[in-house]
Write a protein that binds this DNA or RNA. Structure first.
Length: 765
RNA sequence: GGCUGUUUAGCUCAGUUGGUAGAGCGCAUCGUUUACAUCGAUGAUGUCGGGGGUUCGAGCCCCUCAACAGCCACCA
């Protein structure tokens, strides 16, 4: 053995595990399985420290495998719709291109190829980190079977009356060109102003003067004595000269501003509700590209909101209608992806009626069918779930499965189309205006997007085999160009990767019957609502069972300043670089050692180095033990026959039993930080510093007072070492397996590999 | 606005049935013809955020204040 541990053998060890079939469980109905579905990494995302924290799952998996449970850890990758398209568009931008230069099929193919390279790399990287995943069961979110199932789920939801289209106010990013769900909105404090604008009979206060071009009413509280007698009257909207009514609305805060609110139904969520209630007119001014292309006086047409704002303020000032301007800060929704302010806008979108799915998901948490660790996340989950609103599942991007709904162009000539003609020029317009000029094929082949009126009829068809409109028999059918929110797909991940059969659940695969519900879902809390909650809802909806019995939320890696690591901040520590430098075991140990559950923690090179030293300590203690074994070849290796009377032996074996008990219970309770810290202390301090140092004297005949105690010492050394290796294996699999193989060869040990060896039980001596 | 965390040695942080304060890194002194300098021995530094309470006893339970962080949220 070399003087210090080298991680160069890691790849060989991993290969031998994989080859031995240790990662692939055998279904044994007499045993209770243990299963974890990996929180699928984004296929476009290179490995970062967050992924390295899958170590937690590997610890659980390796522990259960050693307990003898049929253990499955199912790996996969997610196409990650918006995330990936955003990354790809940035790449396009660098090349001087944009998404508008391609029809959707071409764009899709380009993104596919872009992702594929990294997706393969991710698998290699996860192997580098020692993760004992069952690669024979690997899945990718865009593989046909997974997508088929997702479409069938959509169909079932539709048949159950839970899917609808509606043209509500949505969170729309004009930069990314898509709507988002509420969860994807990032609220930021914006320091702005409150403009007081004279509207004839009264003055309104607003943070968004530019939207006045789309005002269709003024609302006051009917209890407001100042304005009570104005309700029902009309005023002339400045700059636009449109007559709009003054209405009474109880939700208006009398104390805020002037107590009078301009109502812009198409560009403000609150105003939208008011307008629905009072049957007001909806006038959109901003189009999906963010510009004021619609329904505004000619001079304001074609500008972004900030530009329109300045023009409006200037013009109002010129005619003396700005009464005053106050400083004001408020929360404004921003795009979580690109950071731009979102434009509230009315747009037709696909919604999932969520209340019927949320109800059982709430009950499952309340009655303990699904448990949360740490338990405080149960409250967060319930709070969110209890105030959940319908989920906008449609995204106006190409990267992802399209919603399987088909429109008939001949029934709906007012469908708006964007496509590239055969000369690659962008054409935009209503079908009725284009159909004489372009063939259906040309439109279909060059299609970028379509927008169907909210009341358009559609046919839901998962097989994509539909050819004729059932109404008019036209063959000019186009599929919805909206794609699914990624989480709609990944929300069904545990089901679909395990072989759930949505057409006939009783015909689901043996894997599904055996491993579902899975044992633990381990992830970071930042996707508790995005993903964990959705999986619970889908799982219960489709199978009446929770997808996992326990949700374990792990810690978050931050940099030395406590900030989340991100490429843009330039503060990332690349786990694979650390692996190269200090070995995988050192990295893994540093990610769990002494860390409290679900806390933020700093990973630094110092810490990794410290754990590298620990790994080396194990290596060298093993060298010492082997040296002793060589020196006393006649001494039996088994503890079974030895008489334990020496206080040093009794002491170390007592401590060993304690550490067996505590490690087992700590892993069972997800106290990985505690478990690893105790093991570290036991091995380094109790075993190396105390026991081995004393053993040296006991084995040295030249010491005048020393007794030669090899009959006891050798078996104890071996028992403690081998047991420690087993206990440490889930945390630091490579060095432990490496040492074990050397010991096995020398001592003819029964168990072929540590990865499948039995978990230690308390010794009697 | 609602909710949740955090505050312990110079730094980063452990510390769940309440019982004489811990680790890693760093620091100081010494040691080592060896399993390991990726080492060993010894040592220093803490009114466990402030205040109050419960208790024989509180870092740990309760109340309160403060600072910091995060999550959720359609109020102009």
């Amino acid at each position: 053995m070399d003087k210090s541990y080298s991680s160069a053998t890691e790849a060989d060890i991993y290969r031998s595990w994989e080859k031995s079939g240790a990662f692939t469980p055998k279904i044994d109905k007499s045993k209770t399985p243990f299963s974890i579905v990996l929180p699928l990494p984004n296929a476009s995302d290179p490995m970062h420290m967050g992924h390295a924290l899958f170590t937690i799952q590997d610890i659980l998996v390796r522990y259960h495998r050693m307990l003898g449970d049929p253990t499955l850890w199912l790996p996969g990758a997610d196409h990650a719709g918006i995330e990936t398209q955003f990354v790809f568009e940035k790449k396009l931008q660098k090349e001087g291109k944009s998404r508008f230069d391609y029809d959707r099929q071409t764009l899709y193919k380009m993104i596919w190829d872009f992702v594929e390279e990294n997706r393969i790399l991710n698998q290699f990287q996860m192997k580098k980190l020692g993760f004992s995943m069952d690669w024979t069961r690997y899945h990718y979110s865009l593989e046909p079977k997974i997508v088929d199932n997702v479409l069938l789920t959509f169909k079932k939801l539709y048949d159950d009356g839970l899917i609808y289209r509606d043209e509500k106010i949505v969170n729309y990013c004009t930069h990314c060109g898509t709507a988002f769900s509420n969860l994807e909105v990032v609220h930021k404090t914006v320091y702005s102003h409150l403009w007081y604008i004279k509207y004839g009979l009264l003055t309104v206060a607003t943070t968004r003067p530019e939207t006045m071009l789309g005002d269709t009413a003024i609302a006051v509280n009917p209890k407001d004595k100042r304005y009570k007698n104005l309700i029902g009257k009309k005023i002339l909207l400045p700059l636009v000269n449109r007559e709009i009514p003054i209405i009474g609305e109880e939700s208006i805060d009398i104390k805020f501003g002037t107590g009078a609110v301009k109502v812009t139904p198409s560009h403000s969520p609150e105003d939208y509700d008011i307008a629905k209630k009072h049957n007001l007119e909806f006038i959109r001014i901003f189009d999906y590209d963010g510009k004021s292309n619609l329904n505004v006086p000619e001079k304001y047409r074609g500008y972004f909101p900030s530009q329109v704002r300045q023009m409006v303020i200037d013009d109002l000032t010129a005619v003396g209608l700005i009464e005053k301007i106050e400083d004001y800060s408020h929360e404004v929704g921003h795009c979580y992806r690109c950071g731009c302010p979102l434009e509230p806008i009315t747009a037709p979108q696909w919604y999932l009626r969520i209340a019927p799915l949320a109800k059982p998901a709430i009950e499952a948490a309340q009655n303990g069918d699904v448990k949360f660790f740490p338990s405080r996340f149960k409250k967060a989950y319930l709070t969110w779930m209890e105030s959940i609103r319908d989920w906008n599942i449609s995204r106006q991007i190409v990267w992802g499965p399209r919603i399987p709904a088909w429109y008939c162009l001949d029934c709906h000539p007012d469908i708006k189309l964007n496509f590239l003609d055969k000369n690659k020029n962008i054409v935009t317009g209503f079908y009725k205006d284009l159909k004489d000029k372009y063939s259906f094929e040309e439109i279909k082949n060059g299609l970028q997007s379509l927008i169907a009126p909210v009341d358009a009829k559609y046919i839901v068809d998962c097989s994509s085999k539909i050819e004729n409109c059932p109404n008019c028999h036209s063959t000019s059918l186009l599929q919805e160009t909206d794609t699914f929110d990624t989480w709609f797909l990944s929300g069904q991940w545990p089901l679909n990767t395990l072989g759930f059969n949505p057409k006939d659940p009783s015909k689901s695969s043996p894997d599904f019957a055996y491993f579902y519900p899975t044992s633990v879902m381990d992830t970071l809390w930042d996707i508790l609502f995005f993903w964990v909650a959705r999986m619970i809802m889908f799982g219960l909806y489709l199978t009446k069972e929770v997808p996992f019995k326990t949700v374990h939320l792990h810690s978050r890696v931050v940099d030395a300043k406590g900030q989340k690591m991100s490429k843009s901040k330039g503060n990332v520590i690349d786990p694979l670089v650390m692996t190269e430098k200090y070995g995988t075991d050192a990295l893994r140990m540093s990610l769990v050692y002494g860390i409290a559950p679900a806390s933020d923690f700093v990973v630094s090179e110092d810490k990794i180095r410290a754990q590298r030293n620990f790994v080396n300590k194990i290596w060298n203690a093993s060298r010492f033990v082997l040296m002793v074994v060589d020196k006393f070849p006649k001494v039996g290796a088994s503890l079974a026959g030895a008489q334990i009377t020496n206080p040093d032996d009794i002491s170390i074996l007592t401590n060993l039993n304690k550490i067996i008990t505590s490690t087992t219970s700590d892993i069972n309770r997800y106290h990985f930080g505690q478990a690893s810290e105790n093991l570290y202390q036991f091995f380094w301090h109790d075993f190396c510093d105390i026991y081995i140092e004393k053993a040296k004297d006991r084995l040295d005949p030249s010491k005048p007072t020393g007794e030669v105690g090899e009959e006891d010492v050798v078996p104890v050394l071996l028992a403690v070492l081998i047991t420690s290796l087993k206990l440490l294996h889930p945390f630091i699999p490579f060095v432990t397996e490496s040492v074990y193989q050397i010991l096995r060869e020398k001592l003819n040990l029964d168990e072929a590999q540590l990865i499948t060896a039995s978990w230690p039980e308390v010794l009697s001596f």
